[in-house]
Design a binder for these strands. Structure first.
Length: 575
RNA sequence: CGCGGGGUAGAGCAGUGGCAGCUCGUCAGGCUCAUAACCUGAAGGUCGUUGGUUCGAAUCCAACCCCCGCAACCA
């Protein structure tokens, strides 16, 4: 069995707001389809993510609600887990940035980067609110826009004229936290020296980005082309991971630098959870293990520039005896470098009424809402069918309904239903004995091959289209063979037709497993399939997949098998 | 001249040098096993604009127009 190792990192949802449709379209469904496919294939999959639980917005939101940030984060985390469970989103480990383990790994990496000279101290000026005694991120300073004179401009941009600003550009600045005029104060920070890592990043990107989506590749190369700048990696704040350096106790590590380290710390935590503390090394140090990062488009530079830079800098630990001894990660035994991203299949933006989903619209577009209204399978089907893989995509509820009725129901659901009903009523509730039609067999085989290739290339929209093409073929086959005529005049021919139609039904069931797992499970019951090995079920039940069995293959349904009274798999939405 | 993506039928999209395609919608027909579902056919496009390369361009090159995202503190 030539099982592959697949690592999947999924960008960490921020633990202050609900998961919304942009998130689903961007990454959370795509990663799950990809992971489910690889598990079915018998590959060794590690998919991790967690709640990103630090940063200024959380602190401020908690204050608004008069609870502690810890409480807010705990509540959000629970809510996210509930949403994921509803939608069938499975992880080997979904954790949070609040764990002790994460803190240790982050500080370990921070210190190694510092020792290798990739972090240096510098000073910058930042507004300070003397009333609430807090440094202010740019977006919490407002004032008059120097470009257009709008008196309500934010420190990062002017919503009126669209100018991108720095907080100290503002005329008559005031703090949004207390309305006082903030003071510009010197504050020292650590900077990640991206400039120093630029040649290495440049080389790596040139050599390994050929398989990336065009826009991700060009966008990332664009950053290098302009020239990388050192980046502040600390913040003046109390809630977060402390900078592990003497005299820096009042600063925390910048969330973005910290959260991406979660990919590694969550892998380490997973290894501990399964009582094999070194198991994470199989995924991080085996050069044949491919690393995929499923993210929303906006996070691209953090995954194609900053995270690889952190990894490159950190991997120098392995060629330095002192550092290797001093900074061992939990469970670490192999003195080998960490793997860099293999692919970063970021999606573009989901638009609502022509605009990016924003604070104003997000409340009407939560993941919970689509689940409650239409169920998990349709949500999953829709956001793969219309995933914004290469450009922005417009969202409308009408399209969700149309997709359900025209594709999920009319194409797949209807074919399954007509086949099962026919079998049940005309052939005494059991699969007729018959012989394969070579066209049917060929089409099934090529569907498995092609859908698999598309998924492996993270072309999920195309993969699903290929499944629909098989559904189309199946309906046409049924029509052309007209078994409802044969059943009266040539029963043998009708038996052959239904035998083949049952095989097509079962093929669709297996092919759709990564996409619409719930309906596929119901269909399995209708076909009276029992004890079928399914790695994704094993993960749900036991929390760990230990066997490696390739189930991405077609298994014939034998003649004579009794089936269950057919029920409709997916309901047509009226109105 | 900041970086990048996109512009193809009424809508949503595929198509990287060889007869312009797919899904939905519209219209006509067929079928009655099936969730008014399924199957067949038709109408519908100066492929953003202009110029160039080529026997041949949606595709390659140049210029321009329009839409979107990003612009290093939106996590």
């Amino acid at each position: 069995m030539n099982s592959e190792k697949i690592f999947i990192g999924v960008s960490w949802p921020y633990a202050s707001d609900k998961v919304h449709l942009g998130h689903l379209a961007g990454q959370y469904i795509a990663c799950d389809v990809f992971a489910r496919y690889h598990r079915l294939k018998g590959n060794d999959v590690l998919m991790v993510s967690g709640s990103d639980s630090h940063g200024a917005p959380i602190v401020l939101k908690a204050e608004e609600r008069d609870i502690s940030p810890e409480e807010l984060v705990k509540e959000s985390h629970k809510q996210i887990l509930e949403t994921y469970k509803n939608l069938g989103l499975l992880y080997e480990n979904y954790t949070s940035t609040t764990t002790q383990n994460h803190k240790e790994v982050v500080q370990n990496i921070f210190l190694v980067l510092k020792e290798r000279g990739y972090l240096y101290e510098g000073t910058s000026q930042q507004y300070y609110d003397t009333k609430v005694e807090r440094y202010l991120p740019d977006r919490y300073v407002k004032g008059t826009c120097p470009e257009c004179g709008n008196t309500d401009a934010r420190g990062d941009e002017c919503p009126e004229c669209g100018a991108y600003l720095n907080a100290d550009d503002l005329i008559d600045p005031y703090s949004t936290l207390s309305d006082v005029k903030p003071e510009l104060r010197d504050t020292r920070h650590f900077y990640l020296d991206l400039k120093k890592l630029e040649p290495k990043l440049d080389k790596w990107m040139k050599e390994s980005s050929d398989n990336w989506r065009k826009w991700v590749r060009e966008f990332s190369k664009g950053w290098i082309k302009i020239g990388l700048k050192p980046r502040e990696v600390t913040r003046d704040m109390e809630f977060g991971i402390k900078v592990p350096v003497k005299g820096w106790e009042d600063k925390v590590i910048y969330v973005w630098v910290e959260a991406v380290i979660g990919y590694l710390s969550a892998s380490i935590e997973w290894a501990q959870n399964i009582n094999k503390p070194s198991r994470w090394e199989d995924f991080w140090k085996d050069e044949n293990c491919k690393h995929y990062y499923f993210i929303a488009g906006g996070n691209t530079p953090f995954h194609t520039i900053i995270w690889p830079a952190e990894l490159m800098g950190y991997s120098e630990k392995y060629s330095d005896d002192t550092l290797w001894e001093k900074y061992k990660l939990p469970g670490e035994t192999k003195r080998e470098e960490l793997n860099l991203p293999y692919d970063v299949p970021a999606n573009k933006m989901l638009l609502y009424k022509g605009k990016k989903i924003s604070k104003g619209t997000v409340d009407m577009l939560t993941a919970d809402e689509i689940f409650e209204k239409y169920g998990a399978d349709l949500a999953r089907f829709f956001f793969i069918r219309f995933a914004p893989e290469n450009h922005d995509r417009e969202f409308s509820w009408e399209d969700v309904v149309a997709t359900n009725n025209n594709e999920l129901v009319a194409n797949i659901g209807n074919f399954v239903n007509r086949t099962l009903t026919f079998t049940y009523t005309k052939f005494d509730k059991s699969v007729p004995n018959g012989s394969w039609d070579s066209d049917v067999r060929e089409n099934i085989d090529s569907a498995f091959k092609e859908v698999g290739e598309y998924v492996e290339g993270v072309k999920l929209t195309k993969a699903l289209q290929r499944v629909l093409a098989l559904g189309n073929f199946a309906n046409k086959y049924f029509n052309d063979r007209a078994p409802w005529v044969d059943v009266k005049e040539d029963e043998g021919r009708a038996r052959d037709t239904l035998f083949n139609a049952i095989q097509l039904t079962n093929a669709l069931r297996i092919l759709l497993k990564p996409f619409t797992p719930f309906g596929c499970k119901r269909l399995g019951k209708l076909l009276n399939i029992k004890d079928e090995y399914d790695a994704n079920d094993v993960l749900v039940e036991k929390g760990l997949v230990e066997e490696s069995i390739n189930t991405w293959v077609y298994e014939e349904i034998e003649g004579g098998r009794e089936i269950v009274k057919p029920k409709i798999l997916w309901i047509k939405i009226e109105d």
